[in-house]
């Protein structure tokens, strides 16, 4: 474990905690894309199939996987529950959360069948999960750019999420130099994901660092 990977996983953990805190404390779901959250549940379910094979990598690895699966499902449950507790906000979310996820799912499914480490169910599922994760934030970014404004907690959530995968890139470089091993598929998807976040990072930098209003394009 190198510092980049630890910081990356902690940033990922923090992003989910910020999101849950965001929903629970402000008791509103405004500006949160349920589509992105459902995609993340799919990412974790397809990636962590090895939990069922009980060939556990390490205690840390296992508890983090269980946390990511359970917390991402919990977020979707919270958002679904707002259908009754905040019917108006829920309806607004559905009206603004209009990104066509069908294209993401089809594209990543094709990518998984074409580019994978082994043509087995587990490896295709893993590859699907990695490609899906690289674009899963798109509905959320799309919603954010359309609304033009957002609660700072949502922006911090997206930033922490983007930081996690961006930190994985130096992690892979570190591991390549120390272990001589690199996962090309994970690297390619990680670079795509970092590029997807790049324009958001620029906006975040302007808003949070420069304290200027987040006037999205």
């Amino acid at each position: 474990m190198n510092p980049f990977r630890i910081l990356g996983d902690l940033s990922h953990l923090a992003s989910i905690l910020v999101l849950i805190f965001n929903i629970k404390s402000t008791n509103t779901i405004e500006g949160i894309s349920i589509k992105t959250q459902v995609l993340y549940v799919l990412v974790f379910l397809t990636r962590y199939l090895d939990l069922f094979s009980f060939r556990l990598v390490s205690f840390y690895n296992t508890i983090m996987k269980l946390f990511f699966i359970s917390s991402s499902i919990y977020v979707v449950v919270l958002l679904q529950r707002s259908k009754t507790t905040q019917a108006v906000a829920y309806k607004t979310m559905l009206l603004t959360d209009t990104f066509k996820v069908q294209y993401i799912l089809l594209g990543t499914l094709i990518a998984a069948f074409v580019i994978n480490h082994k043509f087995t169910f587990v490896e295709i599922a893993w590859s699907f999960s990695v490609w899906l994760e690289s674009v899963a934030i798109l509905p959320q970014l799309f919603m954010l750019s359309k609304s033009g404004k957002s609660k700072s907690l949502t922006v911090h959530y997206i930033f922490a999420l983007g930081l996690y995968r961006t930190l994985y890139i130096p992690n892979w470089i570190w591991r390549y130099h120390t272990e001589g091993v690199i996962d090309k598929i994970a690297l390619a998807a990680g670079i795509i994901q970092t590029l997807v976040y790049s324009d958001f990072f620029y906006l975040y930098y302007k808003k949070v660092i420069k304290r200027s209003a987040l006037n999205l394009p």
Partner: peptide, 10 residues
């Protein structure tokens, strides 16, 4: 042949 990927990362 493909190295059997043991995905040890999250």
């Amino acid at each position: 042949g493909e190295e059997t990927m043991s995905h040890d990362e999250l």
